[in-house]
Design a protein around this nucleic acid. Structure first.
Lengths: 241, 241
DNA sequence: CCAAAAGTGTTCCGGCTACACCCATGC
DNA sequence: GCATGGGTGTAGCCGGAACACTTTTGG
């Protein structure tokens, strides 16, 4: 670029940065995402991802942690809060030049928020239904949600984030349900069982057993120390790439 | 935190956005990255990644394309220009609040730039050497470079970007050299050969043969239509994760 | 002829798939 | 007993690792 200025006499328009959060959880046997109703223009009244502007002196990551805390009272430092691709098309926000940094958060057993707690009403919405029902969220939040879901699906193959959907302890059946929901395909329970138990550091047996419905009670596990899965657990072919 | 405002009466400091480019290429049998010498404070005279501020009304991606063009005369629309994680720590730039969006570009046979073309001197520098020689680049560009390299290594497993390092046609040996440089480990030529030729859409034979050094001349290939590799070509275990 | 790189064949092994089969519970 | 989910065993297939071996060039 021009050599002499690099300074700011070139019009650097007033630009603002937001973070948006895709908070995924499992509730009622469905994969859900936290959606708020916008209280202000633009898109007032439309559903949208929770998020907000960066504050003065605040890091991007810190802003995401703060927003997560405000929305869910969850501590972002302890969750896998993963940054996604920035969305920065010049016309994505009618208010002006606003670039957003989306973050993906995975919450174990997030309780559905009480309505009216904030100026904006928050609720859990089933992800699949939201995405198949055509465009529905404000701004480019549909794209962000789609990206987040694909990112989650990829992560399930190589990392242990699936356990973050679960509580302190869980059964392999519950873990498998996570995979099936995110990948949107059924898995063989027998093979899945061996796959996850054979992977070192993925699961630690707790010994206890859970008895609920009919059927043999399952063994309980806790998340192990491993963060990466080797070998990976791959979705076989047929890409929703 | 406070519930009621969400408006902008809260101080949204003047914030600026830059894009930085990690332009990788192979030259002289080494993996190289394009490095410029900073012409202005801060870090005047230090090596850094090329990059610059967003212009008015310019999308983030468009800014990356523009910077790539300015630095290399390469058309970013035709290269895999991949966005990396945003770096937005509040103190990363002494000039003020500047958040950067790094992009990864892969260039085939990029010629080393002539010195003094711009106010900033640009040159190719060997990546490995740069990274092992401790911190060396301005700002947090060391971290960005490291991230870009790991991203490239991951991409080699699942996508066909390796062919972007090569010219129009290339031999399997040349392609293997790319993998070996980025993964920093030797591969078995025989197995590699079969792996890449068995993957549909990865390579298209050109029929011609290249004769150079001693040894049987290799067949020439062109990049095929496939963008994703299935099955993937995995680095076996031992992570530089 | 020799060195060197390209490419093929073959063997071994481990993971994935599919499915038969047994286990323990609620009803 | 029967339905239901949990868990083990096993056979076949396929891909990767390792390596013997042939091919085709430059010297």
């Amino acid at each position: 670029m021009p050599t002499n200025k690099t300074r700011r006499d070139r019009a650097h328009e007033q630009l603002q940065l937001t973070v948006d959060l895709v908070i995924l959880t499992v509730y009622g046997g469905d994969l859900q995402v936290l959606i708020v109703e916008r209280g202000n223009e633009p898109f007032r009244g439309s559903p949208a991802l929770p998020g907000g502007f960066l504050r003065s002196g605040e890091g991007v990551y810190e802003a995401a942690v703060r927003e997560l805390w405000e929305e869910t009272r969850l501590d972002g430092e302890k969750l896998p809060l993963r940054q996604l691709e920035v969305f920065g098309a010049p016309d994505r926000d009618p208010r002006g030049r606003i670039v957003t940094v989306p973050y993906l958060a995975i919450a174990p057993n997030l309780p559905p928020p009480e309505a009216g707690s904030d100026a904006t009403a928050a609720a859990l919405r089933p992800v699949r239904q939201l995405l198949t029902a055509g465009a529905s969220l404000a701004f480019d939040h549909d794209d962000i949600l789609r990206l987040a879901l694909e990112e989650t699906a990829k992560e399930l193959e190589h990392s242990t984030i699936a356990t973050e959907f679960c509580g302190e302890t869980f059964t392999i059946g519950e873990l498998r349900a996570i995979y099936e929901m995110v990948w949107d395909r059924p898995l063989d329970p027998r093979n899945f069982n061996r796959k996850v138990t054979r992977t070192d550091g993925f699961l630690e047996p707790v010994g206890t057993r859970a008895s609920r419905e009919p059927g043999r009670p399952a063994m309980l596990y806790r998340a192990g120390p491993a963060k990466r899965l080797y070998p990976p657990i791959l979705r076989s072919a047929e890409g929703e790439d």
